[in-house]
Design a protein around this nucleic acid. Structure first.
Length: 261
DNA sequence: AATCAGACCAACCGCTATGCC
DNA sequence: TGGCATAGCGGTTGGTCTGAT
């Protein structure tokens, strides 16, 4: 078992134990919670006979001791779901883990950071190149020698400090965005015509005007806001751009998926 | 057998959200 | 309404494990 050595830190009056939990501490916490329930994490450790912070007790319980937790052996299905949800929701581990019964946010976060992140990033890089090189009409920057010259470009807003880079931006999938605003996808204006993602976004924006609250529409148009009234966290175009980046198929497939073909 | 580097993962820390007074 | 306490979340740390050399 991996873990940290026991360390102690002192504040003004008490010694707080840190580091890996012992079996004895686990038993104390389990026994206390079985008997008295969880009434207040901050004040529980002392009557439970633990020299831990409430925060540490809570974490130990939530991530390891509480009933019905499954550790290890993440299945292929779970792995696929983690990847899918991470791409749709970003690093919202609590939301992701809600779809994975018996798993903990810490476990899924660790699994993503150590095993899946690199794999998915590499796959996405390959897919962007493949999709753009093969499928997209190379009608701009066509005499550039850059390997991605044929990629459609979406004019990304200059993000405010703190919003983060493209890969760090909290995501809300474009489909979710449409759904949350009741955007109809059945009347597909793209049928039988070639659109670059930029055109799609322009088209989509005009539709959004029919459905969004004025302030939300303004945010979408200016790309600059962080919060929609609905609770959406990122500028819609950034979401869509990210959706394109993560989309597993070609650019055209992305467009069709976006509109819920 | 010894050493090293990368992978793994439990636990910590800082920040935010929420509830209560 | 503002301030405080508590819970919860996500990023990061650092000790241990494991495989390669």
């Amino acid at each position: 078992m991996v873990g940290r050595p026991l360390k102690s830190s002192k504040n003004s009056s008490t010694t707080v134990k840190k580091g890996t939990w012992s079996a004895e501490e686990d038993q104390k916490l389990i026994a206390y919670i079985r008997r008295f329930g969880i009434w207040n994490w901050t004040h529980m450790p002392k009557p439970a006979g633990l020299a831990r912070t409430g925060k540490s007790c809570r974490l130990r319980w939530m991530n390891y001791l509480r009933p019905n937790i499954r550790h290890g052996n993440i299945t292929k299905e779970e792995e696929d779901l983690i990847i899918e949800l991470q791409q749709r929701l970003g690093n919202k581990w609590a939301a992701i883990v809600a779809r994975l019964p018996g798993r903990t946010d810490n476990e899924i976060k660790n699994y993503w950071n150590t095993r899946l992140k690199k794999r998915v990033n590499n796959r996405n890089k390959l897919q962007i190149r493949t999709a753009c090189d093969i499928k997209v009409k190379p009608d701009h920057n066509d005499n550039s020698s850059h390997p991605y010259a044929s990629c459609p470009t979406i004019d990304t807003p200059k993000l405010e400090p703190g919003i983060g880079s493209q890969t760090e931006t909290p995501t809300m999938s474009a489909n979710s965005f449409c759904t949350s605003y009741g955007l109809r996808c059945d009347d597909n204006p793209l049928e039988n015509s070639w659109y670059s993602p930029c055109n799609v976004i322009e088209e989509e924006e005009s539709l959004w005007g029919q459905f969004l609250a004025p302030r939300d529409l303004e945010i979408v148009q200016n790309f600059g806001g962080m919060d929609m009234h609905s609770g959406a966290k990122a500028p819609a175009l950034v979401c869509m751009q990210q959706e394109l980046v993560y989309h597993s198929g070609s650019c055209e497939e992305f467009i069709m998926d976006l509109w819920g073909k």
